[in-house]
Design a protein around this nucleic acid. Structure first.
Length: 452
RNA sequence: GGCGACGUGGGAGAGCGGUUAUCCAGCGGCCUGCAAAGCCGUGUACACCGGUUCGAGUCCGGUCGUCGCCUCCA
C-alpha cells in the first residue's frame, strides 16, 4: 500500500497518514454557515475533501467523511432579521440551497452532514465537562472557555498568547475573566428566536464548541484528518483543538489540513468584501466538469484565483479528455500506461498533488493520441475516476438530426466531385445548425459545436 | 507589530540539488482539398543580492513585493 502524506498545520510539515485502526480513515471538514448561498470559495473544501476521500478509497481505505452545517450562529440571526423572517426558516432555506448547489458538483454527499441544532445535547455535555474540569466558567448565562487554562493553546497556529490582538469592544468583554477567553454558550438575547435550555440558562452554543461536539459524536477522538479553509485555522480550529484537549486529555485530530483561499481580483473571495461568485452561477456558466478540473489544476494549499480565463483553460483541458475518448476503446490499457498510472497516484499520495496528477493524465492522453493501435481506456478511466471526471470518457453518441445528416451527405458528394466551394458552404451551413464536421480516415462525422 | 505562506517562460501551474513538467495561447512543420482533431518542433522561465556546494529554481541569510490569519469567514 502506498504511503500517503498530507501537510499538517500543527507541525507545519508533510506527515504520513497514520490510522487509528488499519484501513479506516475519518475526515471532518468544516462546512458552511447557512445564512446565504455558497460561493466558489465555500465550494473548495467541499470539493477538495470529497476528492481526497475518493483517492483514499481508491487506495483501499474505508473512509468516513463528515461535513457539518452550522445552522446556529450570529450571522444567521442577523441575516434572518434583515430579511424579516425567522432564523430557522432562513437556515432551512439555505440548507436546501446548499444541498442542491453542491449536489450539482456530482461528487455525492459526505457520509454525515450534522447540524449544530441537532447536536445540542452533546454540546451541553461537553461544556459541562469543561466546567467540571476547571477549563470553563459560567457568567450571567454565558459560558466561557478559559484559554490560559490550556497550556497548549496557540500551538496549532503557532501563536503566543501575548501576540494575540486582544480585540477590545467585543460582546461579553466585561463578563470574561480574560480577554482571550471565548464563548462556549451564549445566553439568550432579545431578538434571538431560538434558544435551548441548559444548566446555565437558556441560550445557544458558540460556534467552536459545535464542531468539537459534532466531530466527537460522529468520529470519536484522535481521528485522522480535520480539514477546512485556512481562514478557519485561527481561531476556529485552535479553539476546537483546545476544547477537546481540555475536556478529554486527547487530541481531536491527528492531521490538520487546510485548503487555500479562492480569490477574485487578487483578493480573498468573501461575503464581507462582497466579491463573491456563487457556486450555482459558476455551475450554470461553466459546468461541473470544468469547475472540478479548475479546482484540480491548483494545489489545494495554494490560493486559487478565479476568473473566466482560468475557467476556460480548465474547460479546454476537459475537452482534451473528451477528444481522446473518441479514440479509446473499453478495456485494459497498453504497457506504456502502467508507469503513468503509477505516477498519477504517487502524485496524489504526496500531499494530494492534484496538478501533478493532472499533468500525468495529460501525458497519458498524448501517449494515447500518438498510438496508432487502439488504446484501452481502463487506466485513464481509473485516474479520472478519482477526480470524479470519468464521465468525460463516456462519449455520448449524439445522433445528428436528419437535416444535418442530409447536408453532410451532400457535402460528401460535393467533395467527391472536388467542388470545394460547395463543400465548404455546406460545412458552414452545418455549423450554423450547431454541428461541426470532421473528416477522418473513416469518413466524416458530426459533433455538436459546443459540447457541455 | 506577531504568525503562516508565496514570488517560475505570454497566461495558468508542477518541480522533495544535477534529466522535456503539464495545460492554455503563439509560431513553424506533418496529416488534410481546406478545416477540425491529433502528432512533431519551437520560445534568454525561475523577484533581487549574497552564501553553502563539483553543481541551486530547488538549501541558508538578507532585500523588495504579494497574499492569508491575528474580529465573523471555506
Amino acid at each position: 500500500m502506498r504511503e500517503i502524506t498530507l501537510h499538517d498545520t500543527l507541525t507545519g510539515r508533510v506527515l504520513p497518514l497514520r490510522t487509528r485502526e488499519p484501513g479506516r480513515v475519518a475526515i471532518y471538514a468544516c462546512g458552511p454557515t447557512v445564512y446565504g448561498r455558497i460561493h466558489i470559495g465555500n465550494a473548495r473544501p467541499f470539493v477538495v475533501f470529497a476528492l481526497l476521500k475518493r483517492f483514499l478509497e481508491h487506495e483501499g481505505y474505508d473512509v468516513t467523511l463528515v461535513a457539518n452545517i452550522t445552522d446556529v450562529n450570529d450571522k444567521i440571526y442577523a441575516a434572518a432579521s434583515a430579511a424579516g423572517i425567522g432564523s430557522v426558516a432562513l437556515a432551512q432555506e439555505m440548507i436546501a440551497h446548499y444541498l442542491a448547489d453542491t449536489d450539482r458538483l456530482g461528487l455525492g454527499r459526505p457520509d454525515h452532514e450534522p447540524l449544530a441544532s441537532e447536536t445540542i445535547g452533546e454540546i451541553i455535555d461537553l461544556i459541562q465537562i469543561l466546567i467540571d474540569r476547571g477549563h470553563a466558567y459560567a457568567v450571567d448565562g454565558d459560558v466561557y472557555f478559559a484559554v490560559r487554562s490550556d497550556e497548549h493553546y496557540g500551538e496549532l497556529t503557532h501563536r503566543r498568547l501575548e501576540d494575540l490582538d486582544q480585540g477590545e469592544g467585543r460582546e461579553g468583554a466585561e463578563r470574561k475573566r480574560d480577554p482571550l477567553d471565548f464563548a462556549l454558550w451564549k445566553g439568550r438575547k432579545p431578538g434571538e428566536d431560538t434558544a435551548w435550555d441548559a444548566p446555565w440558562g437558556a441560550g445557544r452554543p458558540g460556534w467552536h464548541i459545535e464542531c468539537s461536539a459534532m466531530a466527537e459524536k460522529l468520529l470519536g477522538l484522535d481521528f485522522e484528518i480535520h480539514g477546512g479553509g485556512s481562514d478557519l485555522a485561527f481561531p476556529h480550529h485552535e479553539n476546537e483543538a483546545a476544547q477537546t484537549r481540555a475536556a478529554h486529555g486527547q487530541p481531536l485530530a491527528r492531521l490538520w489540513v487546510h485548503n487555500g483561499m479562492v480569490r477574485l481580483a487578487q483578493e480573498k473571495m468573501s461575503k464581507s468584501i462582497g466579491n463573491t461568485l456563487l457556486l450555482h452561477a459558476a455551475l450554470d456558466r461553466h459546468g461541473r466538469d470544468a469547475l472540478i478540473a479548475y479546482f484540480c489544476a491548483g494545489h489545494y494549499r495554494q490560493p486559487l484565483e478565479y476568473d473566466d480565463e482560468r475557467m476556460e483553460a480548465a474547460a479546454a483541458g476537459v475537452n482534451r479528455f473528451r477528444e481522446v475518448a473518441r479514440r479509446l476503446r473499453p478495456g485494459p490499457s497498453p504497457d506504456w500506461s502502467a508507469p503513468l498510472r503509477m505516477e498519477f497516484f504517487d502524485a496524489l499520495a504526496e500531499d494530494f498533488n492534484t496538478p501533478r496528477a493532472l499533468a500525468t493524465a495529460f501525458d497519458w492522453v498524448r501517449e494515447a493520441n500518438r498510438s496508432s493501435a487502439p488504446v484501452g481506456d481502463a487506466d485513464l478511466r481509473e485516474m479520472l475516476g478519482v477526480f470524479a471526471l470519468e464521465n468525460l470518457l463516456d462519449v455520448e453518441v449524439v445522433v445528428a438530426p436528419e437535416r444535418a445528416q442530409t447536408l453532410m451527405r451532400e457535402r460528401e458528394a460535393a467533395r467527391a466531385e472536388r467542388d470545394w466551394a460547395r463543400a465548404d458552404a455546406l460545412r458552414d451551413e452545418l455549423h450554423g445548425l450547431g454541428w461541426a464536421v470532421r473528416d477522418s480516415p473513416d469518413g466524416p462525422e458530426l459533433t455538436p459545436v459546443d459540447p457541455s
